[in-house]
């Protein structure tokens, strides 16, 4: 396979760090363009909850101080950069005084688990079905069934989730309605807990898979048609290779390459989760956290979640850049 040159590695690493830096800066600037003052929002929430507020000016000043809002902009920015790079996103304004980092820390594993599994399942199923739509040896029945199944792609994930909930949770009672694990199990690395998590995760995962596999299948279909017309596919047949071998080693192997890049880009979006899917299944992941934070105008949480999303995207792209030369030898030539 040959080694990846150091210059290529450094190049990609610098790109990665620059992306993260620029993204962090943008995340800092954009909320400051908003006319909403988070401290006012907090005060408003307190007022709504606890009736009258004594010496509100003092509280305001103190809050502004604790969030560092009384400092000059540049100091705020540098302080923010330092904190962000150490994953210190400050305190949530909605669930004050919980640190944003611990909110994210609690939500991230759930989202990663749910989304990563459904993304991989979707990627495999979608690409395989897309390839089968083109392959000349696919049974006729499949060639009819696969495009028909694509109808699901047109359903919004929200709706498919509700549909699945109705059929499998409410009517058939095969799966629990909401939540990430049952109330009767203690979180921990034991068998009961894992089974409970898988049981609870099945419906949300399925609702994501059935609405997103079409994206991969359609993309793969187009790529496969191109590859099918390539001279190397013709020569493979003329060599008398077995049809399945041609399908995997000549056709899918080449058609999948652009899909791998698309996969990396999806990983970033995956951290944000299917916001609505998490919402309706009351799944305690990043999507739900972000959804609630937006409703509550909880800026530190929004900032923290946005940063994690960008970090994950940049990281995924960086990793794919590293893996890509191993799966496509032509890339090595260019570096």
């Amino acid at each position: 396979m040959g080694r990846i040159p150091v210059s290529y590695l450094i190049n990609r690493l610098i790109t990665f760090m620059l992306t993260v830096f620029i993204a962090a800066t943008l995340i800092w600037i954009i909320p400051r363009l908003s006319p909403v003052d988070p401290v006012d929002v907090m005060l408003g929430r307190m007022a709504a909850g606890g009736g009258s507020i004594e010496n509100s000016d003092a509280i305001l000043t103190q809050l502004r101080q604790s969030f560092g809002l009384d400092q000059p902009m540049i100091v705020q920015y540098l302080l923010y950069l330092k904190n962000t790079l150490t994953f210190d996103f400050g305190l949530s304004t909605a669930s004050f005084p919980t640190p944003v980092a611990s909110l994210i820390g609690n939500a991230l594993p759930w989202t990663l688990g749910l989304m990563f599994i459904s993304l991989i399942v979707t990627f495999i199923i979608g690409n395989l079905l897309g390839a089968l739509m083109v392959w000349e040896n696919t049974p006729k029945i499949w060639k009819v069934a696969i495009p028909s199944a694509m109808v699901f792609t047109a359903i919004p994930p929200l709706l498919s989730g509700l549909l699945l909930m109705y059929v499998f949770a409410t009517q058939l009672r095969w799966f629990p309605l909401t939540g990430a694990y049952g109330l009767n199990v203690e979180p921990g690395w034991d068998w009961d807990f894992i089974v409970s998590v898988l049981h609870h995760g099945f419906l949300p995962a399925l609702s994501i898979v059935i609405v997103t596999f079409g994206f991969w299948a359609l993309g793969m279909r187009g790529l496969m048609i191109t590859v099918q017309g390539e001279d190397y596919s013709v020569l493979a047949k003329a060599k008398g290779l077995r049809p399945r071998y041609i399908l995997y080693r000549y056709m899918i192997r080449n058609a999948i390459l652009p899909q791998v890049t698309a996969f990396a880009l999806q990983i970033g979006g995956l951290v944000a989760g299917q916001v609505l899917v998490e919402r309706i299944f009351a799944y305690p992941g990043m999507g739900k956290l972000l959804y609630d934070a937006i409703l509550d105008q909880d800026f530190p949480v929004i900032q923290g979640v946005s940063f994690v999303i960008i970090l994950m995207t940049a990281l995924a792209v960086f990793l794919v850049d590293l893996i890509y030369p191993l799966i496509d030898p032509r890339i090595r030539h260019e570096m």
Binding site: D231, Y232, L235, R249, R253, I327, P329
Partner: peptide, 10 residues
């Protein structure tokens, strides 16, 4: 015919 593209690139 297509010498340029007849071999599997990977």
């Amino acid at each position: 015919q297509g010498a340029m593209n007849s071999l599997n690139p990977v």
